[in-house]
Design a protein around this nucleic acid. Structure first.
Lengths: 190, 190
DNA sequence: AGCGCAAAGCTACGGCCACTAGCCACCAGT
DNA sequence: ACTGGTGGCTAGTGGCCGTAGCTTTGCGCT
């Protein structure tokens, strides 16, 4: 019987995929082990239990989302940057609901936790979106929180089927982006 | 040994309280039974398992939030109605995070499910807020979704400690309400 | 090539969970 | 007072996380 050749990263990625497929709450050591062709206790050689595994999935999700935002927003500003960032977040949450759920449910254990840096990069992208609107510096933090709330709320409500089906959700999302863009433009030039 | 005199409503309320205290994910039949002075299997005489119990907590939460919104918004319109509704939601989520988590994680099983009606009443209050702004009828649904997203996102991020502590969260919330009010006013009178 | 040793896999186990089966005692209605 | 339904119980199953300890593998070093 050859060895499986696992490292923490492989386990984390397999677990993240499973969480996206069946939901984070359904994730278990057994199902991850099964996918990797291994018995459950073997995973503890690479990962420090289910809580640690979830934390690693959260970090992976934050890193991926940060990368996606950075890539998508290259050279954009103002409304284009806002619309692109928003769509990137929404798409990521729809394609990776398990990773995103892990990310939102996690908090860094300390300043050296890689999750902290990854989350900061995501927040940095949101801040970058707002640089295109000439806001009062004191308003910057409020605007970031408003933007996060709107995107996070919309995406989570959408993935949990919180919206009725009858009206197109894409239209509502576009409307919300326009609403925020107009508000930020007006706030920036009063 | 006298009987405990339980009914489904007692069990649901006790479970909801516990969920608020220790988090919905930590809720278990054992801990509910212990609080009610009863062994865990006895609960199955009143409630059809943990999933059913969670569903009942969700319904309770939606009913309570709907009542709170109705009461708080009596006779208010426009910005006052918006600010009051928003603050009501935020306060409810902060005081009853377990109930709210159950509500957002649940979906009605059918049209006769009491949860469906309760959720509709909450949505109705949001729609009532928007009646004070003279929106195009086609925009109404988008505005409801935007409002829900913002409030839901803000409240869940706040309860999961998603915001850094350094800037006052109350200020950010007030800023967001003002932002939405201005946007809706501008949209209603273009 | 062969040897040694760390590490990666395994089986076996303990404790907690949800949930079921089946028993017993209490209280209500006649 | 009897009787039947009902609310509580104990016992038990299967699943989960996580630990202990064993076996085996395969790399590095002589």
């Amino acid at each position: 019987m050859p060895r499986a050749g696992l490292v923490p990263a492989t386990v984390t990625e397999a677990a993240a995929d499973i969480a996206d497929e069946i939901g984070l709450s359904q994730l278990s050591m057994s199902v991850v082990a099964e996918r990797l062709g291994v018995k459950a206790p073997s995973l503890y050689k690479h990962v420090d239990g289910l809580a640690d595994l979830t934390h690693r999935i959260a970090t992976l999700g934050a890193l991926e989302l940060g990368d996606a935002l950075r890539d998508a927003m290259q050279g954009l500003a103002g409304r284009d940057a806002l619309a692109t960032a928003a769509q990137t977040v929404r798409t990521y949450v729809k394609e990776h609901p398990g990773r995103y759920a892990a990310t939102t449910g996690a908090s860094p254990t300390g300043p050296d936790d890689p999750l902290a840096g990854a989350l900061d990069r995501v927040l940095g992208s949101f801040a970058a979106v707002l640089h295109g609107y000439h806001l009062d510096p004191g308003e910057q933090i409020h605007a970031v929180r408003m933007l996060r709330s709107a995107l996070h709320g919309f995406a989570t409500l959408e993935t949990s089927n919180g919206f009725q089906m009858d009206t197109d959700i894409d239209d509502s999302f576009a409307w919300m982006i326009t609403f925020i863009d107009r508000g930020l433009t007006a706030a920036g030039a009063p």
